[in-house]
């Protein structure tokens, strides 16, 4: 599903080159739930940003479903975010002026899906426990509910990969457990490939496998 070889990313900050990734190699199989653990500045988020097509790599190869990210144009990376990758963020990142339903609808609109979501998606809303909360705006939802809406939004276009960047970072224990359970359920039921960044070893344990990053490298 994902093949990463010798991936590097160098940011230029003023006169200084910052080496965010220093030769990362990683394989993720279809349907795998992978946890990525590491301290701040270890390169986890940069890796996610590259996999999500938000920024191009500096060197190395990244293949997602056989497509080489390094050779992609900006438009092709935009297309990747539209159809292949879904994001879940620590801060939920719902659009505050839209209802939960519209937050999900806009993701479908961006992807060019004009039809109503399929019945399976209605089941997922039930699974997420937010079906009755779809007409509320984010400010009327709890943190846990907002994150569930964000998860629903991230999978509404059936992406091949779900990238979750510290999805429980802003949640209490109860909601964290619920969200992690939902991610594992999605992985089990839909065979959804999930990569999750976390600081929390307990959260990481929900994945099939955990990789540790430090100083831009995978250390174990």
């Amino acid at each position: 599903m994902i093949e990463i070889r010798d991936l590097t990313k160098v940011y230029r900050t003023g006169e200084i080159d910052v080496h965010a990734l220093r030769g990362v190699s990683l394989s993720v199989a279809r349907g795998e739930f992978l946890s990525v653990v590491g301290p701040s500045g270890s390169g986890k988020s940069t890796l996610f940003n590259i996999l999500g097509g938000l920024t191009p790599p500096t060197s190395g190869t990244v293949h997602i479903d056989g497509r080489d990210l390094l050779k992609m144009t900006d438009a092709e990376r935009t297309d990747l975010r539209k159809k292949t990758v879904g994001f879940v963020f620590q801060k939920y990142n719902l659009l505050p002026t839209l209802t939960a339903e519209d937050n999900i609808a806009i993701a479908r609109d961006i992807a060019g899906n004009k039809a109503e979501p399929d019945p399976q998606f209605q089941e997922i809303l039930t699974l997420l426990g937010i079906r009755e909360r779809m007409h509320h705006k984010p400010r009327a939802l709890s943190g846990g509910e907002q994150q569930r809406v964000a998860i629903a939004r991230s999978i509404v276009n059936h992406p091949a990969i779900l990238l979750a960047d510290e999805p429980t970072g802003n949640l209490d224990t109860e909601n964290s457990t619920a969200v992690l359970g939902i991610l594992r359920d999605l992985n089990n039921r839909l065979n959804q490939t999930i990569l999750m960044i976390t600081h929390n070893p307990e959260a990481a344990a929900y994945g099939h496998r955990t990789v540790h990053m430090r100083d831009g490298r995978i250390v174990e």
Partner: peptide, 16 residues
Amino acid sequence: TREIGVLKALGASPSY
């Protein structure tokens, strides 16, 4: 700014 970032993360093109 943040909302625009969210739209872009969802795959919104510059023209969108």
